[in-house]
Design a protein around this nucleic acid. Structure first.
Lengths: 342, 342
DNA sequence: TGTCTAAATGTTATCGATAACATGGTCAAT
DNA sequence: ATTGACCATGTTATCGATAACATTTAGACA
């Protein structure tokens, strides 16, 4: 069936079948146009009969409106980014804009390719996860002539608009909390340095805050290539305890790594939080439901998506008043759980 | 910056800047064409300088090749579908095809909308998750004139090609295994009936196999609207034990629900697998790493994606020999773990 | 009745690229 | 010198829709 390339019907075909001009068909498919109800009915009938599906590439070319916004996320298998996309989709539902998704695999070079491909389809705006890009990528974005929204970060030199938070500050919150509970030998468990700039920012925030509290900031364990899996979190905990057996707390780059570390403690009979406290990042469901539940940071993923939607609407003039700060920062929340003795 | 709608440069702009005709620019960007190396260099330089990005809508219109395939998945936050997409992407890397992703939220009406929007962009093939669609959706797919691949299912009346497995048979495998271990009072924990047809198929397979073993197939707990969260799995376990306190095993529609149920047992001091055995579905990482690890079914997600890629290449004649069965069934694997006493 | 307005529809040009064909050069073989 | 093959490039028509303008018709109102 698929092997016969029966050419898909065009608007002209529908027009002929309905006995009108192509322009009338075009209007019939667009809301808010003056087409006689009977004519419209005949056109819709003809279209259904032919199995007609509009060619939106042609429509976009002609009208210069493609009706979608592009979104890059690091991974399609991440509850945090999924929530952000959900918030974005919700916030755009009322408008005529769809979301076109692509994932970068936590790689800025992959991102550059992707951004090129996405911009080639002429989105009306683009949302990026993170504020670190290749030079070429920044240049393309800046010259695309559309609103660009960087999220999940607080970039020093934003391309355009920002909806995010400081990953470094979020890590610092955890450090301060653990220190306030009397834990002094605190480790950071994260991915290796080449990718996942948000994870790197968290590590940077960890180091800075440890220093400012006059604590040793060198207990850093590399768990592998981001995204860090639960297994990698577990393995890294083994290395951590081998090298620094007296560690009193570990801050993990994500809840998934934290959960992996927790399970390893369970397998080894290390009491949590008795001997070691564990904290994660992201407020994933697992951190709430596991036993014991894990202290974490909630970055308000969905709100990021919703605010991004608003930023897009403002930038495109779909919202009145169309004023809104170009840089929107969200305050992450600390969720205290049993894994840190709370 | 984004507020000034500086029109993006076109191929004609690049041509002018490089002192050649637009056609030469077009050729310069296409591999395997004869363009003098110096000319090409000048064109690329001009394009970079202008921040030129090709308009692939126009290119697709003209060449009748859009260079992408459409993919619908139920959710962007699911490791199983993510793995399938990854396998697909890998399998398509060598070809000129990109993947365009959209998610249905486990809703066939949403899927219909989505399929219409995707077909409107004229993909060269489309992959769907599941074999259940609205009538209109099937009609559109059948008339799109492109290869259609239904996955993650074994549909009775496929639209075109299939790469999948029987969800019912997979559930039956679990039933047989638990029965063979002497468990007779087995429950099924799944989502309510209106959505997620793959989950429904698993339940159907559970009931049929229980009946054929002369066991009571009526211990069915509804955990909420798919996708079932860990929390919903935990809550459902509470209801299950309230209603049928003597239950000896529970098969969950996914590993996430199974893990939720497991944590609830831990909170309530119910021994697993001592009092109750727990099995999941999907071979998610969590089922392997949690304590105790959970018995599950591995549907070979990535292989589904890879085979789909191959099916696409065959259907489009990119592969020699371009012969391949139209219906590819994969055998899910049973992974035995401690949660069922293995 | 005549004039005006709005609704309903058609006509033409255009969006940005590429296919198909046309053209002018270079170089080797005859 | 002639032929032909091939390379490099230009020209024209076209993909499928829509914007902008043109036209026709029906009804409202003076």
């Amino acid at each position: 069936m698929s092997s016969k390339p029966i050419k898909a019907p065009t608007m002209t075909d529908v027009a002929r079948a309905a006995g009108v001009s192509p322009m009338t068909v075009s209007r019939a498919f667009k809301a808010g146009t003056n087409v006689h109800s009977e004519t419209r009915r005949a056109i819709v009938a003809a279209a259904d009969q032919l199995g007609y599906v509009m060619n939106s590439a042609a429509a976009g070319l002609s009208s210069q409106k493609t009706g979608f916004i592009a979104v890059t996320i690091p991974s399609i298998n991440n509850a945090n980014f999924a929530d952000t996309v959900r918030g974005l989709t919700e916030g755009l539902r009322e408008s005529r804009l769809q979301v076109l998704l692509a994932y970068t695999d936590y790689d800025v070079n992959e991102e550059e390719q992707l951004v090129r491909q996405l911009l080639a389809r002429r989105p009306e705006a683009i949302m990026l996860t993170g504020g670190t890009h290749t030079e070429k990528c920044r240049y393309m974005l800046a010259h695309a002539g559309i609103p660009v929204i960087e999220t999940w970060d607080d970039p020093v030199a934003p391309v355009d608009r920002v909806v995010g938070f400081s990953n470094a500050a979020a890590a610092a919150i955890l450090v301060r909390h653990l220190a306030s509970k009397g834990r002094r030998k605190i480790a950071f468990l994260g991915g290796d340095a080449s990718r996942d700039t948000r994870g790197l920012d968290r590590r940077r925030g960890f180091i800075r805050e440890m220093e400012s509290l006059s604590l040793d900031p060198t207990r850093l364990v590399e768990a592998g290539t981001p995204p860090i899996s639960m297994r990698e979190g577990a393995d890294a905990l083994v290395r951590l305890m081998a090298r620094w057996p007296d560690t009193e707390a570990v801050i993990c780059v994500s809840d998934l790594a934290a959960f992996g570390a927790l399970t390893e403690c369970q397998r080894r009979g290390i009491p949590v939080p008795g001997q070691i406290a564990i904290a994660g990042f992201g407020a994933y469901e697992i951190s709430e439901i596991c036993v014991p539940p894990i202290t974490t940071i909630d970055p308000h993923c969905r709100a990021i998506g919703q605010l991004t939607a608003k930023a897009v609407r403002c930038a495109l003039g779909l919202e009145v008043p169309s004023k809104m700060p170009v840089r929107q920062l969200i305050e992450p929340a600390l969720l205290l759980r049993a894994s840190t003795g709370d």
